[in-house]
Design a protein around this nucleic acid. Sequence first.
DNA 1: ATGGTATTTTTGCCTTTAGCAAAGAAAAAG
DNA 2: CTTTTTCTTTGCTAAAGGCAAAAATACCAT
Lengths: 151, 151
Amino acid sequence: MDLRLKQQATAITELTFDLLRCCEAKEKLFAKDHGLKVAEFRCLRIVEAGKSYSVQELASSMHLSPSRLTRIIDGLFAEKLVDRVQSIEDRRFAKISLTNKGQTLVGKLKEEYADLHGEMLKDISVTDRDKIHDGISLMQGLVSTWLVKNA
Amino acid sequence: MDLRLKQQATAITELTFDLLRCCEAKEKLFAKDHGLKVAEFRCLRIVEAGKSYSVQELASSMHLSPSRLTRIIDGLFAEKLVDRVQSIEDRRFAKISLTNKGQTLVGKLKEEYADLHGEMLKDISVTDRDKIHDGISLMQGLVSTWLVKNA
DNA sequence: ATGGTATTTTTGCCTTTAGCAAAGAAAAAG
DNA sequence: CTTTTTCTTTGCTAAAGGCAAAAATACCAT
């Protein structure tokens, strides 16, 4: 095995690990500040206004089990942030979508979460921001592909 | 607020979010394959052979509470992967260090976890690997700094 | 010395996160 | 019209994690 690859892999392993810990802490703080459980925030973050989703769709895009999603949706439903209706075409499917209240909240959430990142990024150069974007984008693609093959 | 910054922040927010989900799934798989709980793997991953750590040190570098660390260490201790002795200079402190068995395991763990990343990285160019390295390194620094100020 | 305060870790208790396996409900296949 | 498959939910359990109080020790005053 290529020595250079090994060195790079080791360094990236370490960095990714540290980044992960920090980002989890960041998410936890943000969710708490907005009165949400982390799982709820993560779920709301991926649903777009106007669209509707099956439990499965949400589960797989969050890398969680369907049963876990049922509970998360229970919570959001109880807070009237999402609607849950049976699909008419195939009544096995649930159609999960944002309520008006949910849409308002999600809009605010996305806005403020992006602002939080804007705050972190504001003192570095546009070039460095692009480096972050490109690096993370590449890595995300790799891990995502790896997961599909190995999970 | 700068429009360019806002766009970049939004994109990076999204990418980081996705990367986080994927990396968590990756860690979970890896830990499971090695018969470890995720928390145990995460803890072992940061202790170096020969060094000793207080509960606090481990807690803060893992962004967890000391009480949580006590439990994680309980588990590792039960499996004879770490030693836990009272510090002689200040007997309030615990000194956590790897046993021989622990050192062997951690060595293997680090090696294999780096190999896993090597596997992901092997088909892209050296330049792209450097981009990943630099991007994640920058981001890690930013989030880390942000956390210190805001937590 | 000794009583009070601060620090470090542990313990008890609770919440949150998560999955598995079985049950329910509906569609599709035979 | 039964059997099989698919999607979601429910019951149960485990893992992850924090808070507050307790326990043990160190550090200070006086």
